[in-house]
Design a protein around this nucleic acid. Structure first.
Length: 484
RNA sequence: UCCUGAGUAGCUCAGCCGGUUAGAGCAUCUGACUGUUAAUCAGAGGGUCGCUGGUUCGAGCCCAGCCUCAGGAGCCA
C-alpha cells in the first residue's frame, strides 16, 4: 500500500480542486504518444488521462505501460492542456502494479464484436459497454429492493432446491449426490431416490411462486428476487438456463391491483436508472445508434434509448383482454394479407411472438398488458373467470409485453377456491396429494391474492438497449455453455 | 429441438469458375515522431482455412457426417 489514499476516477472527473495531489489506481485502456495513459478504475465509464514525462521516465517502465496493465499514478490534478478532457493528472510517480503481456491480452483499443467478448466473459467487464451494462444492472437490482422496501413488502428467500416437481413451469435441472455410474435401484429396477441426499428426487427451482404464496398469506405482501433455473433447450436472444426473477405475491390484491403494482414497479426502476445512470445510458444510447447504422432504415428504432425510456414513463401501458387482442389481430393488415406465419382465425389460439410484436411495436407502440387468456393455455393456479355467454373459459392472467423484448412479466390473480383449484389440478394431471402443503393455504383462511414474475435480465435488456440476453448477465448459462 | 446463415492470422473480414507462393485493416514486435484522443509514419513477424471422411491430377472453395457460434421459431421470464 502506498501512503496516499487512492482517489476514485469518478470523483476526480468532477473535481474543481486543481493543484491537489492524488493517487489513482486502475487499468490502462490505451497509452498514446508515449505520454498519455487513459486509466479506468471501474468507478466511471470515463477514463482519466495521466500524462507522464517520457524524457525523465525510464524506458523500461514506459514499455510496461500496456493496454490492460494495472498502474498506480501519483501527481497533481491540473486543467487539461489538450482538448478532449477537462482534467488530467501530471504524473510524478508511476508504479506498474500488474504487468499485462500485450501480445497475449485479447482486448485491444478497438471495437470488438459482442460474440467475441462473450467468449472472454471473464475480461469483458473491462470494456465500456459491459461497464455500463453491469452498472445499470446493479442500479436496477437496487431499485427493485428499494421499491418494495418503501412499500413494506417482505423480501422472502424461497428455496433454490425443491422437492416438488409439480410447478409445471418447464424442464428442471436434477440435483443429486448419487453416483451416476452406479445408481441404486429398487426391486422393480427404478432409481432408488431414498438413497439420495434428501431421500427423494430433487431439482433446482423454476419459480418461487408457490412458496411465495405461502408467505404472502401471512405477511400480506412479499417478493422474491433470486436465481431461477430452466433446463429448456432454448436457443434465443431472450432465454437463459439460469436467470434472475422477481416474484411479488400479494394477499387481497385482485388482477387490477396486480397490474397497477407491476406497472408502477417497472416505471419506478426505469426512472431510477435514468436518474442514477445517466453516463452509462448516454453511452449505451450511442452504442445502440452505432449498431443500428448497420441495419436498413426500416428496422431501426424510431426512438433513441433514453427517449424510449422516458416515453415508457410518460404513458400508461395499454390494457386489453386476450379477446380484444384477437379482434385487433384478426382485422390487422398482416393477418388479412396473410403475412403472419400463423394466421389468427379463431379464439383460443396461443399468441405467437409475431402477434405480440405486432400489438406492441406496430399497433399500440407502447407496453401492452394482455389479460384474461383462455384457461386452456395457462397454468393451473390462475383464477378462473365465470364462463361467458359463448361458453368460453378464461383465467385472470396478465402478461406485460415490451417492445423488442416480448413478455417481460407474467402473472395472474390466483385461484383461492380450494374446490375449483383441486378440480383444475386434476384436469391438468397435477398430483394433488404432493401439493397438500400448497392447498393448505386454500383450506385455512384463503383470500383473494395475486402475483407476477418479472424476468430481471429481460428488464436489463430493455433498459440498456442490448439485444442479446447473454450480454446482460455476467456469465450466461445456455444450452452447451457453462463456461467460467 | 426445428429452419436459415456462418466458421480463413490475436480481432474484424476478403478470397473469382476447383489451379500451383492464401490476402487486407487493426493488434503485436522494431524504429521514427512527441499534446495525443481507437495517436501518426516506416518496416517486420504471424495461418492445423472448425473437425473427420470422400470426390479430383489438384480442395479454403465441391459432397457427406459431426462440432461450435449467430439470427429466427417453439418453450417462457
Amino acid at each position: 500500500m502506498s501512503l496516499m489514499k487512492r482517489t476514485k476516477i469518478k470523483d476526480l472527473l468532477n473535481t474543481t480542486e486543481f493543484g491537489q495531489q492524488v493517487t489513482v489506481k486502475g487499468w490502462v485502456r490505451t497509452f498514446r504518444n508515449n505520454q498519455f495513459i487513459a486509466i479506468n478504475d471501474g468507478s466511471s465509464i470515463n477514463n482519466i488521462q495521466a500524462v507522464v514525462d517520457f524524457t525523465t521516465t525510464e524506458e523500461s517502465v514506459l514499455k510496461r505501460i500496456t493496454t490492460g496493465s494495472a498502474v498506480s499514478v501519483t501527481g497533481q490534478v491540473i486543467e487539461s492542456l489538450g482538448k478532449g478532457q477537462r482534467v488530467e493528472i501530471k504524473v510524478e510517480q508511476l508504479e506498474i502494479i500488474g504487468d499485462c503481456d500485450a501480445e497475449k491480452y485479447p482486448l485491444q483499443p478497438k471495437k470488438h464484436s459482442l460474440e467475441f467478448l462473450r467468449e472472454i466473459a471473464h475480461l469483458r467487464f473491462r470494456t465500456n459497454t459491459f461497464n455500463a451494462v453491469f452498472k445499470v444492472r446493479n442500479a436496477l437490482a437496487y431499485a427493485i429492493h428499494k421499491f418494495f422496501n418503501e412499500r413494506g413488502f417482505v423480501y422472502m428467500h424461497t428455496p433454490v432446491i425443491t422437492g416438488s416437481d409439480a410447478e409445471g413451469a418447464g424442464e428442471m435441472f436434477r440435483v443429486t449426490t448419487l453416483d451416476l455410474d452406479n445408481l441404486p435401484r429398487t426391486e422393480d429396477g427404478s432409481i432408488n431416490y431414498k438413497e439420495d441426499f434428501f431421500g427423494k428426487s430433487t431439482n433446482l427451482t423454476v419459480s418461487g411462486q408457490l412458496e411465495g404464496e405461502l408467505a404472502a398469506l401471512a405477511f400480506g405482501e412479499i417478493y422474491t428476487f433470486g436465481p431461477t433455473f430452466r433446463a429448456e433447450n432454448s436457443n434465443t436472444t431472450r432465454h437463459l438456463a439460469e436467470f434472475w426473477m422477481i416474484e411479488p405475491e400479494m394477499a387481497f390484491y385482485e388482477l387490477d391491483d396486480n397490474m397497477d403494482l407491476a406497472e408502477e414497479l417497472l416505471k419506478y426502476v426505469i426512472r431510477y436508472a435514468l436518474d442514477n445512470c445517466s453516463d452509462e445510458l448516454e453511452f449505451l444510447k450511442g452504442r445502440l445508434q452505432e449498431e443500428e447504422k448497420q441495419k436498413p432504415q426500416n428496422e431501426r428504432s424510431e426512438l433513441d434509448l433514453i427517449t424510449k425510456l422516458n416515453f415508457c414513463l410518460e404513458n400508461d401501458f395499454e390494457r386489453i383482454t386476450y379477446t380484444e387482442a384477437i379482434q385487433i389481430l384478426k382485422n390487422s393488415k398482416p393477418n388479412q394479407k396473410k403475412q403472419f406465419k400463423y394466421l389468427i382465425e379463431d379464439w383460443g389460439a396461443d399468441l405467437q411472438s409475431e402477434h405480440e410484436r405486432y400489438l406492441v411495436e406496430k399497433h399500440f407502440k407502447k407496453p401492452v398488458i394482455l389479460t384474461d387468456y383462455p384457461a386452456e393455455i395457462k397454468a393451473f393456479y390462475m383464477k378462473q373467470n365465470s364462463t361467458d355467454e359463448q361458453g368460453r373459459n378464461t383465467v385472470r392472467a396478465m402478461d406485460i409485453l415490451f417492445p423488442g423484448i416480448g413478455e417481460i412479466v407474467g402473472g395472474s390473480q390466483r385461484e383461492e377456491s380450494l374446490e375449483k383449484l383441486e378440480r383444475r389440478m386434476k384436469e391438468m394431471h397435477i398430483p394433488v396429494e404432493e401439493m397438500n402443503w400448497f392447498l393448505d393455504t386454500r383450506r385455512f383462511g384463503s383470500v383473494p391474492h395475486s402475483g407476477f414474475g418479472l424476468g430481471f435480465e429481460r428488464l436489463v435488456l430493455f433498459v440498456t438497449g442490448m439485444t442479446n440476453i447473454r450480454d446482460v448477465i455476467p456469465f450466461p448459462r445456455t444450452p452447451k455453455n457453462a463456461e467460467f
